[in-house]
Computed example of a mutant assay.
Amino acid sequence: MKDFDHLMSVWQGQPAKTQLSVDEVLKQVKKGIRGITGKLYWGIVGMIAITAYTFVVLFFFTFKYWQTYVGIGVILMTMLLYLSLIVRHYRILHKRDHTVNPTEYLKSLKEYQKQRATLAGWFYYIFVMLISVGLSLYLVELLAHSSPVKKYTIYGLTVAWILFLTFYLKRRIFRSEEEKLNLLIDRLQRLENQFEG
């Protein structure tokens, strides 16, 4: 009888499967998406400002070397490509209302997650490489009459900055967003499973 009582107390002590509150999950999802879209929005605003400045430099400043024009052109095209990608990502998250059709919303979140994973993968490295090439070509004229010490110092700092962006900052930026997105998708899937099961 002691064993039975012990088994009953263990069984009753097991946590019951908690039912998720629809309102609470939707509030959390809305808040999480608002945070991600807010970052994307300010990224778009910043990229538009930098792209406009680069456009002005390319077309309204005069340079001696053709490499400078090519470098600035490469930087401008790379920024326009990146701008188009983040605008597309912003639209994916911002255009859908999660209360109208949660299943479609979950699909759009998964689509966004897949596209961001692609961006975090190969495209980020291509982006950094193209910006580096453009910056290197631009610096040829900028540093043409500088001392070798100044040239090596600026090129060294530029390479260090690019390595920092590539190997440290990239992981932090994309990992944080990926964790938030995984949490939101998990909550929506659990909610969906709750109503199916």
Rank of each mutant, 00 (worst) to 15 (best):
M1T: 07
D3I: 07
D5R: 08
H6P: 00
L7H: 11
M8V: 13
M8E: 12
M8S: 10
V10T: 07
Q12W: 01
Q12G: 09
Q12L: 13
Q14R: 13
Q19I: 14
S21E: 09
S21V: 09
L26P: 01
K27Y: 12
V29G: 00
V29A: 09
K31E: 15
K31Y: 12
G32N: 05
G32E: 04
G35I: 07
K39L: 10
G43C: 08
I44V: 08
G46S: 14
G46C: 07
M47C: 11
A49L: 14
A49Y: 12
I50F: 10
A52Y: 04
Y53G: 10
Y53D: 07
V56C: 08
T62L: 04
F63D: 01
Y65N: 11
W66Q: 09
Q67F: 12
T68C: 09
G71P: 03
I72H: 04
G73S: 15
G73T: 15
V74P: 01
V74Y: 01
I75W: 01
I75Q: 10
M79D: 13
L83M: 06
I86Q: 06
R88W: 09
R88A: 13
H89N: 11
Y90L: 04
L93D: 03
H94L: 03
K95I: 01
R96A: 14
V100H: 07
V100W: 02
E104I: 07
K107T: 15
L109Y: 06
K114Q: 14
K114D: 11
R116P: 00
A120Q: 08
G121T: 05
G121C: 05
G121A: 08
G121D: 06
F123Q: 04
Y124E: 09
Y125F: 15
Y125E: 09
Y125L: 12
I126K: 02
F127T: 04
F127A: 01
F127N: 13
F127S: 03
F127K: 10
M129P: 00
V133Y: 04
L135E: 04
Y138C: 07
L142H: 13
L142N: 10
L143W: 09
L143V: 07
A144K: 14
A144Q: 13
A144C: 04
S146E: 13
S147L: 11
S147V: 11
P148M: 11
Y152N: 12
Y152K: 08
T153W: 11
T153G: 01
T153D: 05
I154G: 05
I154V: 15
I154T: 14
Y155D: 05
L157W: 14
A160I: 08
I162E: 01
L163K: 01
L165C: 06
T166R: 04
F167G: 05
R171T: 10
F174R: 02
F174A: 03
F174P: 00
E178V: 02
E178Q: 15
E179V: 13
L181T: 06
L181D: 03
N182S: 14
L183A: 12
L184I: 15
I185G: 03
Q189R: 09
Q189A: 02
L191W: 09
N193T: 05
Q194W: 08
Q194L: 10
F195C: 02
F195Y: 15
